[in-house]
């Protein structure tokens, strides 16, 4: 192999890889926002549909991200809020938080009425509780309904811990998971509230 051939090989290979990587970066740049949107929409939309009733916008497209701190590697952590609008005004804000349950983390979406600082309702998004027992946090609508209409200042602990929420009998750990997740979501909302401008 002559030196000329070798150089030509290296030049061609380098050019090809640079062009490939460059064009991919460009495609990535163009599709990035849409991909984020699709992922969030696919995972969150079913829960959003369940918890929101009367709205006119696309809460996923209008989502608000607020930096709440940094993780162990120094990357920013965001809280994502989904505003539901009617007639141009924000009527409900939805946000998600999770807390440990019996079989793993329980994710809960919380809908808040920002004008009156009241909970509109909650919906469980992710859970891996015992079927038939812990899953009553989803299957038994009267449990979730306890949260609806309460002011944000209410005590969302279980009654056994001095709060206002009646646990499902036989599923105390799962009920407590939901309670703790709601408390976290409400806390998160109150900590970012000053930054929200509607």
């Amino acid at each position: 192999m002559t030196l000329r051939e070798l150089i030509r090989m290296i030049v061609v290979l380098t050019c090809v890889t640079v062009v490939c990587a460059g064009s991919l970066a460009a495609v990535r740049l163009v599709t990035r926002e849409q991909i984020d949107y699709q992922q969030i929409k696919f995972i969150k939309e079913p829960a959003l549909k369940k918890i929101l009733t009367d709205y006119e916008n696309d809460p996923v497209a209008d989502r608000i991200q607020i930096e709440t701190g940094k993780d162990a590697r120094g990357r920013p952590v965001y809280a994502t809020l989904f505003p539901a609008k009617k007639g141009g005004a924000v009527v409900t804000v939805v946000l998600e938080a999770s807390a440990p349950g019996y079989g793993g983390p329980i994710g809960v979406m919380v809908a808040i009425d920002p004008k009156n600082d009241r909970l509109r309702g909650i919906a469980v998004t992710t859970q891996s509780e015992t079927p038939g027992l812990g899953t009553k946090i989803i299957d038994d609508p009267s449990f979730g309904a306890q949260f609806a209409g309460k002011p944000l200042s209410a005590n969302f602990q279980l009654a056994s811990a001095g709060g206002d929420i009646q646990a499902i009998s036989g599923a105390t750990v799962s009920s407590n998971g939901v309670s703790q997740a709601v408390i976290r979501a409400v806390g998160l909302y109150q900590s970012v509230k000053p930054e929200l401008k509607f």
Binding site: S23, L24, Q39
Partner: peptide, 12 residues
Amino acid sequence: VIVELVMQAYFY
């Protein structure tokens, strides 16, 4: 990869 990205963006 182009197909991957486009599909992710529009046909999730």
